[in-house]
């Protein structure tokens, strides 16, 4: 992947897309091969180290913190950027308070960027689904990743929310300069915003190209709709 690109990874059920995500972010080890990010191998790193190396992600089934407020969810994303020590927190040194204020301000900016400022005090568990998705994206952005990996961000969203999401993904690239890798079933999203689409089936890459090229590729159509030959 190149800097500043939006790439989509698509494929039918069980094609191995989420597995690929989980291997990149250190949840499972690969059985062979290497993963290089910005020239450095990230194979074998624990998930929190993968994050520290500049890869942020969201999850297919949402892994926000349901019992934290929206603001706190985002603040947890700033963990790596926090320069206050535990000791200074225990006795509330002025330096820790200043650092806390700085984080609160940055979190506030991020909440506004994602349109979450009005609901920042609610517990994440009570939010509508689309809002929960955005909380997860905001939390991942808070860790200042160079690359964002979004696992089915449009799942369960209504068409209006999907449009907002498309706009948001573009802004993340255009305004924040993030590189974006996307796994998505929602073809409207994929075809709309991707610079490049990679199609997987049964664990292998079967096609790659612009959305238009991929859409016409007979191998892709066969993978998705099944073939006459198999019947």
């Amino acid at each position: 992947m190149h800097e500043g690109e939006i790439v989509s990874l698509i494929g039918p059920n069980g094609a191995g897309k989420t597995t690929a995500f989980n291997v990149i972010t250190g949840i499972y080890p690969p059985s062979a091969g290497d993963i290089r990010f910005a020239g450095r191998s990230v194979v074998g790193l624990a998930p929190h180290r993968v994050c520290a190396s500049g890869i942020g992600r969201t999850f297919q089934n949402l892994r926000i913190f349901p019992n934290l407020s929206v603001r706190d969810n985002v603040l947890v994303g700033f963990t790596l950027g926090n320069r206050a020590s535990l000791l200074s927190a225990l006795v509330r040194l002025p330096s820790q308070r200043r650092e806390e204020q700085r984080l609160q301000a940055e979190a506030g900016a991020l909440l506004r960027l994602l349109g979450l400022a009005e609901i920042e005090d609610q517990l994440a568990r009570y939010l509508a689904y689309g809002d929960q998705r955005r909380v997860e994206i905001a939390r991942a952005l808070a860790a200042q990743p160079r690359m964002m990996m979004l696992d089915e961000p449009a799942a369960g969203m209504n068409p209006a929310e999907v449009d907002d999401l498309n706009a948001l993904i573009r802004r993340m690239r255009d305004e924040l300069g993030k590189t974006i890798l996307l796994v998505e079933h929602h073809m409207n999203v994929v075809m709309d915003i991707s610079d490049r689409v990679i199609v997987m089936d049964q664990g292998r890459k079967i096609a790659e190209g612009t959305p238009q090229e991929v859409k016409r590729d007979p191998r892709v159509i066969q993978a998705y709709l099944g073939s006459e030959a198999a019947a």
Binding site: A46, H48, G56, F59, F65, P66, V76, F78, A143
Partner: peptide
């Protein structure tokens, strides 16, 4: 910040590790 991370971990350890 430390306590927030702790409560986050209690809710979802993997989610917490994904943000470092």
């Amino acid at each position: 910040a430390f306590g927030r991370a702790m409560r986050a971990m209690r809710d979802d350890e993997l989610g917490a590790s994904s943000v470092g």
